Simulated assay, not measured.
Amino acid sequence: MTIERMEPSDHDAHVESLSAITLATHDMARAVRFYEALGFRMLYGGANDAFTSFALGSSYLNLTSETHGPINFWGRVIIYVSDVDAFYRKVLAHGIEPQFAPRDAPWNERYFHLTDPDGHELSFARPL
């Protein structure tokens, strides 16, 4: 008897939860001090890094450094999905063009970004 391994269909890929919100800052050191003063626990990055992540219950608050000119980037919402690659294919099948194909990040997530019709950046991710 041969047992076939069933691959999940791209239609099975679904949103699971809100993972994080990423906010832009001109001054990472000042922003890190502020969130640490509020009692947020730093998980990644720091005052001298371009990207910092804080624990926020079961979610995260991320900071990204924008050093040139006014902040034209408000931030990004990060949404966990059941399967990043399958969700990416599902997005493509609906005619939506992500900014890049799924990739692995040094903070141990697989992710890709897209922009909604109003210019809001959405990131779809899954822990590695």
Results as ranks from 00 to 15, higher is better:
Gly95Asn: 02
His14Asp: 09
Gly45Cys: 01
Thr25Ile: 04
Ala47Leu: 08
Val77Lys: 01
Ala55His: 07
His94Trp: 07
Thr67Gln: 14
Gly75Lys: 02
Ile21Phe: 12
Gly95Glu: 05
Pro8Glu: 13
Glu7Val: 13
Arg89Lys: 11
Phe73Gly: 01
Ile96Thr: 13
Glu66Trp: 10
Val32Lys: 12
His94Val: 03
Glu7Trp: 09
Pro8Asn: 13
His94Phe: 12
Phe34Tyr: 13
Ile71Asp: 06
Arg76Ser: 08
Pro102Tyr: 13
Gly75Ala: 04
Val77Arg: 01
Gly75Pro: 00
Ile78Phe: 02
Asp27Asn: 14
Ser53Cys: 06
Met28Gln: 12
Trp74Gly: 04
Asp83Pro: 04
Asp27Cys: 06
Val91Leu: 14
Ser82Thr: 10
Asp12Thr: 13
Tyr44Leu: 02
Gly46Ile: 00
Arg76Phe: 00
Asn48Gly: 08
Phe54Cys: 07
Val32Cys: 15
Leu92Ser: 00
Asn72Asp: 14
Ala93Gln: 07
Arg103Asn: 03
Ala31Leu: 05
Phe34Asp: 04
Met42Phe: 02
Pro8Ile: 14
Val77Ala: 13
Thr64Trp: 05
Ala101Gln: 10
Arg89Gly: 03
Leu43Gly: 13
Ala37Cys: 08
Ala13His: 01
Thr52Tyr: 09
Ala93Tyr: 04
Arg30Ala: 15
Asn62Ile: 00
Asp85Asn: 08
Ala24Ser: 15
Thr25Phe: 08
His26Trp: 06
Thr67Ile: 10
Gly57Val: 02
Pro70Met: 08
Ala29Arg: 09
His68Leu: 10
Ser58Arg: 10
His68Tyr: 09
Asp83Gly: 05
Met28Pro: 11
Ala50Gln: 07
Asn72Val: 06
Ser53Trp: 02
Leu18Val: 15
Thr64Ser: 10
His26Ala: 11
Val84Met: 05
Phe51His: 15
Asp12Ile: 03
Met28Asn: 06
Asp27Arg: 08
Phe40Asp: 03
Pro102Val: 11
His94Tyr: 10
Thr25Arg: 07
Tyr80Leu: 07
Val84Ile: 11
Gln99Phe: 01
Ala37Gly: 15
Ile21Met: 12
Ala47Asn: 03
Val81Ile: 06
His11Ser: 15
Leu92Arg: 15
Glu36Leu: 11
Ser9His: 06
Arg33Asn: 12
Ala37Asp: 15
Ser82Asn: 05
Arg89Ala: 10
Pro70Gly: 07
Phe87Arg: 00
Arg76Lys: 10
Pro102Arg: 09
Gly39Asn: 07
Val81Gly: 03
Ala93Pro: 02
Ser59His: 12
Ile79His: 03
Ile21Ser: 10
Glu97Gly: 01
Ile78Tyr: 01
Glu66Thr: 11
Leu61Pro: 03
Asp83Asn: 12
Asp27Val: 07
Asn62Tyr: 05
Arg103Ala: 05
Ile96Glu: 08
Ile79Arg: 05
Asp83His: 10
Pro98Lys: 00
Asn48Glu: 14
Ile71Thr: 12
Tyr35Gln: 02
Gly75Met: 04
Pro70Ala: 14
His68Gly: 03
Gln99Val: 02
Glu16Ile: 15
His26Ile: 04
Ala86Trp: 06
Leu23Trp: 13
Asp10Glu: 12
Ile21Leu: 10
Ile21Gly: 07
Asp10Asn: 10
Pro102Met: 09
Ile96Arg: 03
Leu43Lys: 12
Thr22Gln: 04
Glu97Cys: 05
Asn72Thr: 11
Asp12Gly: 05
Arg41Pro: 04
Gly69Glu: 11
Ala55Ser: 12
Ser65Lys: 11
Ile96Ala: 14
